[in-house]
Amino acid sequence: MKTTYRRDDFKKRFVASAPQKRVGVLIVLFVLVIIMLFVPFVRGVISRGLYVIAPPLWTFGAAVGESWDSWWGLISSKQTLISENNTLREELSRMEVLVLDRNALAEEVTRLEETLGRPGSDNRVLGRVLAGPGWSPYDTFIIDVGAEHGIAVADVVVYAGAGTIGEIVEVYPESSKVKLYSSPGEENAVLVGERLAPAVARGRGMGNFIVDVSRGSVVASGDRVVLVKGKLTLGIVGLVEEKSAEPVIHVYFRTPFNLANVHSLEVLVKK
């Protein structure tokens, strides 16, 4: 007896339904993208391609933003502008005094290093921030200086000439990517407080850190935390938490400046 099959039975048995096809396509796409992310050569090519078009776009976006701010400033109330102007002048005067003090110290350090036969060991390259942590879910900065300016992977990045912020992790011809020390999961050797207690600081994101020091260490809110590498300021202690059942003290500290207000960074280029 001849057996015949209906065409739609065939389709049901051997042809995937539309939702199944879509899940299949999604899985293939996902695997392809994973490969592109983790195969260094492929990722490098795609990154370099994206970083050819990205910096001009970011620069254009920043220019549009500045134009908007200028226009908005024109239509803001005169009284608001006067008040803001006075506040900024006062802050500027205060900063000028602090900078004088710091410049005097820097000159003294340079003189001492020369006397000891150890001239200044770093060159500093100033970079403008193209994109920062608030722009992406990652703790990274993109700056407008790269290999053409002498930047290399693992160069330390500082803000305001003193506070260290992170390291260069990717370099392109005219831009580079800075990974912050406060990135979640990052660990760095630090010295805490006036007695320079050694410890390991763990990043918690957006300029925040936590470090555990042994019970009995003298640490208080307002103490400085210094990165062992380079002896640069990493942050200021905000909260010290002591629990009677634990043998350690939890110290929470953060960068002494607001990451959202960082518009330029300095890269310490190795000579």
């Binding site: 994973i34 994206l50 879910p137 990274t140 979640p184 990052e186």
Partner: peptide, 28 residues
């Protein structure tokens, strides 16, 4: 949106981030 997430990871993510295999894949 998968491709947009991939672009976000490539542009702003970095190696050594504490996600899958040490690289940020949050966007994707």
């Amino acid at each position: 949106i998968l491709i947009a997430g991939f672009c976000l990871d490539i542009l702003y993510g970095a190696t050594g981030m504490p996600f899958i295999f040490g690289f940020g894949v949050l966007g994707m």
